[in-house]
Amino acid sequence: MPTTDRLTFAAETCTRCAGDKKFRQYAHVRAGRCFTCKGTGRKLSRTGRAAQKAFEALVAERTGIDCGAVTVGMVIESSSPLGAPWSVDRIDTVANDSGTVTRWAVHVRPTGEDRCTLPAGHTLLRHMPEAVEQAAREIAARYKGASYR
């Protein structure tokens, strides 16, 4: 999901690790990192999770496009497992007969791949930073678990 560094969601101390970020007794598993908070010591509060879900839904509604409607040269945003998290890709070819779209990554993928084929019916997110910022402002105004700076 596209993000903006200006929108923050309400968080609280992780209840699993009590904010310590790791467990010494599990140092042999991913250096003991807490899986609940992903080693940050904090996790989203209930109101923060609700605001984040609303933000993701609003961005998907405003920027989402079906594979069948894309055109060559269109810029989209993608996430794992198809590419690096939140990479920006440019559509390279569209094969309407098979209903597939091939895209070319603008940013280098961790796997070294530079092309990916998506099935028809897959929803893509257009790269529209202005729409994401507008959605962030609206969510911050509507939800007490979000703030926009």
Rank of each mutant, 00 (worst) to 15 (best):
Arg24Glu: 05
Leu58Gln: 01
Glu113Pro: 03
Val88Asn: 03
Asp92Thr: 01
Gly32Ser: 04
Cys67Gln: 03
Glu61Asn: 14
Val108Gly: 05
Ala105Thr: 07
Arg90Ser: 02
Tyr26Phe: 12
Val94Lys: 02
Cys37Tyr: 04
Arg90Ala: 02
Gly68Pro: 01
Val106Cys: 11
Lys22Phe: 10
Thr13Gln: 03
Ser45Met: 09
Gly32Asp: 02
Cys37Ala: 00
Pro110Cys: 03
Ala10Lys: 00
Thr63Pro: 05
Arg90Trp: 02
Phe9Met: 03
Arg30Tyr: 09
Ala95Ile: 10
Thr47Ala: 06
Gly48Leu: 01
Leu58Thr: 03
Thr15Tyr: 04
Val106Gln: 06
Gly19Pro: 08
Arg49Ser: 08
Val94Gln: 03
Gln52Trp: 05
His28Asp: 14
Gly32Val: 02
Ser80Tyr: 06
Asp97His: 12
Ile65His: 08
Gly39Glu: 07
Ala95Ser: 15
Ile91Asp: 05
Ala31Pro: 12
Leu7Trp: 00
Gln25Asp: 15
Asp97Ala: 13
Glu77Asp: 11
Ala95Tyr: 14
Ser80Val: 12
Ala18His: 15
Arg49Gly: 11
Thr93Ser: 08
Val106Ile: 15
Glu77Thr: 05
Trp86Tyr: 13
Arg90Met: 00
Asp5Asn: 12
Cys17Trp: 03
Gly112Gln: 11
Ile91Trp: 00
Arg115His: 14
Trp104Met: 12
Thr63Leu: 04
Thr13Ala: 10
Gly64Ala: 02
Cys34Trp: 00
Arg30Ile: 07
Asp92Lys: 10
Val72Ile: 09
Lys38Leu: 01
Thr15Glu: 15
Trp104Ala: 14
Pro81Ile: 01
Val70Cys: 13
Phe23Glu: 05
Asp92Ala: 04
Arg16His: 08
